[in-house]
Write a protein that binds this DNA or RNA. Structure first.
Length: 226
DNA sequence: GCGACAG
DNA sequence: ATCTTGTCGC
């Protein structure tokens, strides 16, 4: 799979915001998205100073067994700026995705999608670039307001931004801190949450996220020489 | 103006 | 994200 990043790649925050505003027009929020995905991918990036390691792990959607995984290492080219996370992580993430031989039916991203200041978070961006259905799963609050969801697994509440429902605060395990789910591309929020729950049978975070997080950290460690 | 702010 | 010790619990 060949992935084309925007050219030229933005150098400033203003240029990056302009890219988001332009690509947002290509966002597909129609849904319903994959009903019975067979292969689900998780992506994540780990950092150590200016070094980084991006990982993509594809799991069997039913058994959650690893089907394929790729990790690439490199150096940071964009500093972290709230709202512009994609420009820090996409170069390496797309490189890892390009080396994948399997085309996943859904990609679970670390972070937000539509729940974003300009309605174009990392999950939306990666979705538009790859054409794949994507969903964003954030671990902490970023934008929007919400009520505390019920304490049982599956309970959720609306994540509202400027009067729009842009995501859901979803409890994936009884009594544990909820996660923030928002759609990325080619999927609806209801379906996205259904898949996130199915991918989180035992822990707070989806198995895809956990697997990608582990791989990115070990890849970073091995690249350093330990 | 000030504080908050995915990872 | 990453920096960090011990601690409670399965």
């Amino acid at each position: 799979m060949k992935i084309q990043l925007s050219h030229p790649w933005p150098e400033t925050a203003a240029e990056a915001e302009a890219v988001q505003d332009a690509l947002r027009a290509s966002l597909d929020l129609a849904g319903p998205g994959p009903r019975r995905p067979a292969a689900v991918a998780g992506v994540d990036v780990a950092y150590a100073g200016d070094r980084l390691a991006a990982a993509v792990v594809v799991l069997d959607a039913v058994t959650h067994r690893v089907v394929e995984q790729v990790a690439v290492t490199g150096r940071t080219a964009f500093e972290y700026v709230p709202g512009l996370l994609a420009f820090r992580e996409l170069p390496s993430l797309t490189e890892a995705l390009e080396r994948l031989t399997i085309v996943p039916d859904l990609v679970v991203c670390d972070g937000y999608g539509l729940a974003h200041p300009r309605r174009f978070g990392l999950a939306c961006h990666l979705g538009v670039l790859t054409g794949l259905p994507t969903v964003g799963v954030g671990k902490t609050a970023f934008v929007g307001s919400h009520r505390e969801p019920g304490r049982e697994r599956g309970a959720w509440s609306d994540l509202v931004l400027d009067g729009d429902v842009v995501g859901r605060v979803l409890r994936t395990q009884d009594g544990v801190k909820p996660v923030f789910v928002s759609t990325g591309h080619r999927i609806d929020l209801e379906t996205a949450c259904r898949h996130v729950l199915a991918l989180s049978p035992r822990y707070r975070l989806p198995e895809t996220t956990r697997a990608a997080d582990r791989l990115s950290r070990t890849a970073l460690r091995e690249a350093a020489g330990g």
